[in-house]
């Protein structure tokens, strides 16, 4: 009884890098070498945000660190920047887990949308300040809006398939008291 939640926690901690790796793999498939006029949603970011609002203990900061850094390196992004912003965004949401316990999904979505917008804006600002060449504004905007739009689906996927749910207060106490 005592070991089962523990193994599940570790399983889920491994699940995030595994899922991210699968997403990266799909991105890297050499299917589209033509430049596209649109950008797909940033699924890894959405997943990280959804998990850190639900079960922060499934998503240690180091796991975000390594996964996002890997994504930065493989996807040819400026290394480290997106990782830093994602960690900051997730930590911000993790501190808001308690007040969110009772609130409706819409307000959660709203705060996630705020975080995603902040990440995009900060990313572009820092790239501008350091004078790094970057993608056209429309592409970033499309990606941001797509990420916000797909967030409910990601949450649905997390809750129904992966069973990453918010804890009830008693369970939360049990986890905390470990």
């Amino acid at each position: 009884m005592a070991s089962t939640p523990q193994t599940r926690i570790w399983l889920m901690r491994l699940m995030f890098p595994a899922l991210s790796f699968a997403i990266l793999f799909a991105h890297l498939l050499p299917l589209d070498t033509l430049p596209r006029g649109w950008a797909p949603p940033d699924l890894i970011l959405g997943l990280a945000l959804a998990w850190s609002l639900r079960r922060p203990d499934y998503l240690p900061t180091l796991s975000i660190f390594f996964t996002m850094l890997m994504a930065d390196l493989l996807l040819y992004r400026p290394p480290g920047l997106m990782t830093m912003l994602t960690i900051l965004g997730c930590e911000f949401l993790k501190t808001r887990v308690l007040p969110h316990r009772e609130t409706a999904f819409v307000s959660e979505w709203f705060s996630v949308a705020l975080v995603i917008t902040a990440i995009t804006v900060l990313n572009r600002t820092i790239l501008n300040v350091t004078n790094t060449g970057q993608a056209p504004l429309t592409l970033s905007m499309i990606q941001m809006i797509m990420t916000i739009g797909i967030y409910p689906l990601l949450v649905l996927f997390c809750q129904s398939v992966l069973r990453v749910r918010k804890l009830s207060p008693s369970e939360a106490d049990a986890v905390r008291g470990r």
């Binding site: 050499p30 299917l31 070498t33 950008a39 992004r77």
Partner: peptide, 15 residues
């Protein structure tokens, strides 16, 4: 042989 593309819509490269 082309193994992978850049994987991001913002960059155009292949491996």
């Amino acid at each position: 042989v082309v193994m992978a593309d850049s994987g991001s819509p913002f960059r155009q490269s292949v491996l």
